[in-house]
């Protein structure tokens, strides 16, 4: 097994009231890691530790086996793109890209070639001579990314790169990021509170809760087999309740994703009976809120068109395939 590109080992800090860490994880080369977490969970703090804004014990962070915890930001070979872009407004687009190259040992021709390459990669060539302050939201974000990647860092740190953009620019930027990652293969840590981004980028995914890394796994696994109910709830799992209610003999909590609940016309022989409280159109699917007596609410996602027996106030029978049921560890029901 080769050495991982990034090793974080027991990174821990007390920042005012907030206790951060301890956090340990490893990141292989060329990986794309999406770190999910609610506001205030320490996402940006982690990036700031990695990027060198805060110092840490030298061996808490290793890049390519090299301890970098005490190095200043400029010596870490990481590029950090903050939420606000932080473009240099007095420089043009190409001067912004050239800014970081000034500090690299490059010949003039190499430098120009690299500027051209990154203008092209991020589709900014037509804006090369614009002042950075004049760019639109999406272009500004692309410039921030181009400027960061132009210094060819070993690790790219992105703080909410798709945040604060309109849906079209968001999709465009997302495509752009995927293409660039395929071409350059720069390992990336991408921090966001939007779980949709984790799906669309389809790489490794971690959940940060209360300053700790809850779980680190491929997206598919994380969403279908979250390690504990809290992670499951953050990831949008709706139906978390004691396993007994799903007909399992265990004393643990269990989870069933809304799309795995199936509704039939009322039939006491199959499954249990439920009352439909509400039916909401969510565009691609219908969200159906069910009441199973005993204060328990479940949510089911149904494809379109809806069967005619699914109407608000009607009774239906609910069933599911037990293999879709996800049982959490040995935590007892609340």
């Amino acid at each position: 097994m080769s050495v991982p590109l990034l090793e974080v080992h027991e990174l821990e800090a007390q920042l005012g009231e907030f206790h951060f860490g301890p956090i340990s994880f490893e990141l292989p080369a060329r990986a794309w890691l999406v770190l999910l977490g609610p506001s205030g969970c320490g996402k940006t703090t982690l990036l700031r530790f990695l990027a060198g804004v805060y110092r840490s014990p030298p061996t808490a962070i290793r890049l390519d086996g090299r301890p970098i915890g005490r190095l200043p930001p400029e010596q870490r070979q990481m590029a950090y793109v903050a939420q606000a872009n932080d473009l240099f407004p007095h420089l043009t687009v190409q001067e912004n890209i050239a800014f970081g190259l000034r500090f690299l040992p490059l010949s003039q021709t190499d430098r120009l070639a690299r500027i051209r390459r990154f203008l092209d990669l991020f589709r900014l060539t037509h804006r090369a001579h614009y002042r950075a302050g004049l760019l639109s939201g999406g272009e500004g974000r692309r410039l921030a990314l181009a400027r960061a990647l132009a210094i060819e860092p070993q690790l790219l740190l992105l703080d909410e790169p798709l945040g604060m953009l309109d849906p079209n620019s968001r999709r465009e930027l997302h495509e752009c990021l995927t293409l660039v990652h395929e071409e350059l293969g720069t390992a990336t840590i991408h921090v966001t509170h939007d779980r949709e981004e984790a799906w669309t980028l389809n790489g490794l995914c971690g959940v940060l809760l209360h300053g700790r890394l809850g779980q680190l796994a491929p997206v598919e696994e994380l969403f279908h087999h979250p390690a504990n109910p809290e992670i499951a709830r953050f990831l949008g799992a709706e139906n978390v309740c004691p396993a007994r209610e799903f007909g399992c003999p265990n004393d643990t909590l269990a989870m069933l994703r809304p799309e795995h609940l199936l509704l039939d016309s009322p039939n006491p022989q199959t499954g249990c009976l439920a009352t439909i409280l509400a039916c909401r159109d969510r565009g691609a699917f219908h969200e159906v809120e069910l009441s199973l007596g005993s204060n328990r609410r479940w949510i089911a996602h149904l494809g379109k068109p809806l069967p005619d027996y699914v109407v608000s106030g009607a009774r239906v029978s609910v069933r599911w395939d037990p293999q879709h049921l996800h049982l959490f560890g040995q935590e007892t029901a609340p």
Binding site: A51, G52, V53, P72, P73, E74, M78, A79, Y80, A82, A84, D86, F88, F99, G100, R102, F103, L104, R147, A148, I151
Partner: peptide, 17 residues
């Protein structure tokens, strides 16, 4: 803004740069 200065540091400029 200190954030701009920090951005320059992340791009490889030392404090003097």
């Amino acid at each position: 803004p200190p954030d701009l200065e920090l951005a320059a540091r992340h791009l490889g400029a030392n404090a003097w740069g």
